[in-house]
Design a protein around this nucleic acid. Structure first.
Length: 532
DNA sequence: CGGTCAGCGTGTATACGCTGACCGGTGCCATACT
């Protein structure tokens, strides 16, 4: 384990480690107590130590944290870790502190103003600071960071740049400008899933230079991929009940809406004996924490949730992931089924599909972008002087997300001054450019939806389909592959008999212990009663 | 698209059915307000 007690010992050890990369093994042993690196870790760490920009696509469970924790200690200075969720930052800081490194902190809304100020004043005492892209964009944070020597700029869950940055959390797109104002420290972007297109987007957004891309295949051999089509919601629910009794738990059931998570949890309570609950973004922080905790500690068999659940959930024995809706892309689907079987044991991913299911994600895409009328209005209007953004917002009834996105892009084009739109005729081309940009993004998203629709309707091997989508090739298919290679019903029977044998062995084992105990008791009693 | 819900009319049942509008997923932060 990590055995440091004060900052001077860190510096002494890290300086020794820095001299020679071949000492990495010794450093790993000294600082973390591990004898060997996991697959991929050494490669990434060496590239980081050589001050190269690195994009690493590494399956979950390979120890991504070590890939920046170790270099941060050797390189000295401050390592910034951009993380998408406060809960994720908290977990990582807690784990690092528990392992012995007290020089880590997270800067988030969980701290009050004074605590934030204190933390900013004491940045020099830290090895690692975790923060969200939104926090990193705040002026007082930027000012404090610029005064520090930042040696490494890490983006954890880097697919969020591409997945969320363009519309939902645009502060992700400001990361490059932050990095550049920090003197362009070398950059490490980590994720578990990225198609070549997403990879290109991440590299472009972060303006990586001479970067090293380290990519491991997305194919997870221990997960069977099953897709079944039904004609109605009633059939969907009936099939779910049938399947949930055939698969192993713990299980995650993904649905499309918050309301549906609650409905399915109710259905499971009525129709099965499983312990289940629901989880979505509308719950209070306390409830979310409680349910997450219960699931992780095996107090719940099943969790019914929206896509709010999953990122950063560290649970190795999830046996089944069921989708009752259509995720908005194959990447999203792969991320979500990847939460099964991290312990490498055989696991199951089932998607129950009905033909109308693409309409919900389609409506999300449609609603995400500002109304075409709004942009047409802006680009055609002859009197530009009298619009405040608030007026436009109210007139077009923009929700918070669309408004923030529009604000971000207008601001990027320097069209906003003190909350008001500053447009003149010369800038009309900028509005036209934005309109094209939104249309293009929308088309791309619809195309991604089309791709997953084709995937669920595919009549060829689903595993090959996914790998092909990520531009990878599979040479050998596993025994339990997918519903195109083997019917789900057949697979479930085979798996059940294997599991049955495992369960029987366990119970025979238990029985023998018990019978021995009983035997002993009987002998003792026999001695007492009938002895001699 | 499908579900849900408010508003309305019916016309007396204090509920019911119809219609049209609207909403549906993901998180961070700050600020204003209670």
């Amino acid at each position: 384990m990590f055995l440091l007690s004060d900052s001077s010992s860190i510096i002494a050890k890290t300086e020794r480690g820095c001299k020679n990369l071949s000492n990495l093994d010794a450093t790993l042993k000294n600082l973390f107590g591990f004898d060997t690196f996991r697959e991929g870790q050494r490669e990434i760490i060496e590239a980081v130590m050589n001050q190269q920009d690195v994009l690493a696509i590494l399956p979950t469970g390979r120890g991504k944290t070590l890939c920046y924790h170790l270099p941060s200690l050797i390189l000295g200075g401050l390592t910034l870790v951009i993380s998408p969720l406060v809960s994720l930052m908290e977990d990582q800081v807690t784990q690092m502190k528990a392992s012995g490194n007290k020089r880590v902190a997270h800067l988030s809304s969980l701290l009050n103003q004074q605590e934030k100020q204190d933390l900013m004043m004491g940045l020099g005492n830290l090895d690692l600071l975790f923060l969200s892209p939104e926090m990193a964009s705040l002026p007082f944070v930027k000012r404090a960071l610029v005064r520090q020597k930042i040696t490494l700029f890490v983006i954890d869950e880097a697919h969020c740049i591409s997945h969320w940055g363009h519309e939902f959390r645009t502060d992700y797109l400001r990361l490059n400008s932050l990095r550049s104002s920090l003197g362009n420290p070398s950059c490490l972007a980590l994720t578990a899933t990225a198609t070549p297109l997403v990879e290109k987007d991440i590299r472009g957004q972060l303006k990586m230079e001479n970067e090293v891309v380290i990519r491991y295949p997305v194919n997870r051999e221990n997960i069977y991929i099953g897709i079944e089509e039904v004609a109605s919601v009633q059939e969907k629910h009936a099939l779910l009940i049938a399947r949930i009794n055939q698969v192993e738990t713990p299980a995650i059931i993904y649905t499309g809406t918050r309301q549906e998570t609650e409905r399915i949890a109710g259905l499971l309570k009525r129709e099965t004996n499983f312990e289940s609950s629901f989880y979505h973004g509308g719950l209070t922080k306390e409830d979310r924490l409680l349910i997450q905790h219960q699931f992780i500690h095996d107090e719940l068999d099943i969790i019914c949730c929206t896509n709010a659940f999953g990122m950063g959930i560290n649970k190795s024995n999830v046996r089944t992931v069921i989708h009752l809706h259509l995720p908005s892309s194959i990447e999203q689907y792969v991320q979500e089924i990847g939460r099964a079987g991290r312990d490498q044991s055989q696991s199951t991913a089932l998607l129950i599909y009905q033909p109308e299911d693409h309409l919900l994600p389609l409506s999300f895409i449609e609603n995400e972008f500002p109304d075409d009328d709004l942009l047409n209005h802006l680009s055609d209007e002859s009197d530009f002087s009298h619009y405040s953004l608030e007026e436009l917002r109210n007139f077009y009834q923009l929700d918070d997300n669309s408004y923030r996105m529009l604000h971000y892009y207008l601001d990027q084009e320097n069209l906003i001054e003190e909350g008001n739109l500053q447009l003149n005729e010369q800038q009309q081309h900028v509005i036209k450019k934005l309109r094209v940009k939104f249309q293009t993004r929308k088309k791309e998203k619809i195309l991604q939806l089309e791709r997953i629709k084709s995937f669920v309707l595919s009549r060829t091997c689903l595993r090959r389909y996914v790998s092909h989508y990520f531009e990878e090739e599979i040479l050998v298919l596993p025994e339990f592959c997918c519903s195109q290679c083997q019917l789900t019903e057949t697979y479930l029977k085979e798996i059940d008999s294997i599991n049955y044998n495992v369960r029987s062995e366990r119970s025979i084992h238990k029985e023998s212990d018990w019978s021995k105990e009983l035997e002993n008791m009987l002998i003792t009693n026999a001695g007492g009663l009938y002895g001699k």
